[in-house]
Design a protein around this nucleic acid. Structure first.
Lengths: 211, 211
DNA sequence: GGGATCGTTCGGCGGCGGCCGAAAAGAAGC
DNA sequence: GCTTCTTTTCGGCCGCCGCCGAACGATCCC
């Protein structure tokens, strides 16, 4: 259930129970504990109860844990699973930022352009901050680091490389979705690059051949 | 046992059993699992078996987990514990780098001096790298980031702020210990700043009043 | 209001897992 | 060789914990 919630969206208790293959009553117990422990927040809406990760720090912790555990690919069976899997590898959201080959490609392009510093750790450069506000038209208020860091590296589960996370990563993903540069595939966390997005990446970051 | 091992040193199975208040046979079971899971490495030496965290990434994971769990101070009882506790708060090692008020003070001083970038994330600046090699005389080969990042922030358990971790943090701590700028108190992870260290911090970082 | 859907509460079952003690194995010192 | 010390192996016990089903409550839709 935690891994499912790593997509950042709100799930109902029933969805999570079905996803995990357990009885609804069992899911209720677990969700209560996770909420009591501060890992999840709930939002009641009619007869549904939506639960969601309590914040970016919880997502980070789960990512770190899963990165350590899941080094074996769960051997997909059948055509459906294989295509779903390859879509996930190509591009997806990771909590609230971009991941997969797409996420890593954007991160690397930003690093090449001097917008990110991956040599001394993981940080947005002054040029990077200016790029977000001037070129992408993000408001500086949105990029004020509160208790969440502006930029941080998140180990990509499929690429085994770091991609951009943190506040900047979230706002970047938000912008990509709002501009229709990427679009969600179905209801999952997989995303695909639109023709618009392809052009934007080429113009803004000199990124030519992203599949 | 994991928390005890977070000091970065090697413990014997018996020490860990006594520390955790469990029977030696029980400790053996748990240590086997931790080793099988790749979290610990062992080194057999005579009739002793030393175990140690398998690396910096394990330490980071445990730090992150403990930072989420231990927000309540475990109410020290008696004079001994209070003094031990205040020593830990003043300065200690956190796996292989400096922590406590001392660690945070050094990190902040480096940030003020433009050696660290904490605004855009957490990274060593070019000036910071030069400072480590030229002023502190660290060899550039030692600071080549392999799979471990050069700099990363580690949430300080007592200060609730970030201090410098990663490769640079480890080498910095190593240098401080080698130059006798800090010295271990007893056999624990607490450290104290020596008069030499006080002078060095003043000269190198303009850090005046560290207690 | 009636029926369907979703969620929760409660009781109870089964099994896993943590724990220990006793005994044995390995290593050091005499 | 023997003793001492540390660690491991093996059974076995106990308790917790995860699981479910059934009943109930809540909500929406017709």
């Amino acid at each position: 259930m935690c891994l499912a919630l790593l997509d950042g969206r709100a799930w109902t208790a029933g969805e999570l129970a079905a996803h995990a293959g357990i009885a609804p009553s069992t899911a209720t117990q677990h969700l209560h504990r996770l909420i009591d422990g501060g890992l999840l927040v709930e939002r009641r809406q009619g007869r549904h109860r939506y639960v969601q990760l309590a914040g970016a720090s919880v997502a980070q912790l789960l990512e770190d844990l899963s990165a350590r555990i899941e080094h074996r690919p769960a051997s997909p069976r059948g055509l459906r699973e294989v295509t779903a899997n390859s879509a996930l590898r190509r591009g997806r959201t990771c909590y609230d930022h971009l991941a997969g080959r797409l996420g890593v490609a954007v991160t690397d392009a930003m690093t090449r352009a001097g917008l990110l510093d991956q040599a001394g750790g993981f940080a947005l450069t002054a040029a990077g901050l200016a790029w977000l506000t001037d070129t992408l038209r993000l408001s500086p208020e949105d990029l004020r680091p509160g208790n969440r860091p502006l930029a941080r590296g998140c180990l990509d589960w499929t690429e085994r490389r770091q991609h951009l996370a943190g506040l900047a990563g979230a706002k970047l993903c938000e912008t990509f979705l709002a501009n229709d540069w990427v679009a969600r595939i179905g209801s999952g966390r997989a995303v695909r690059l639109t023709p618009n997005g392809k052009a934007a990446l080429r113009d803004l970051l000199g990124l030519a051949d992203v599949d």
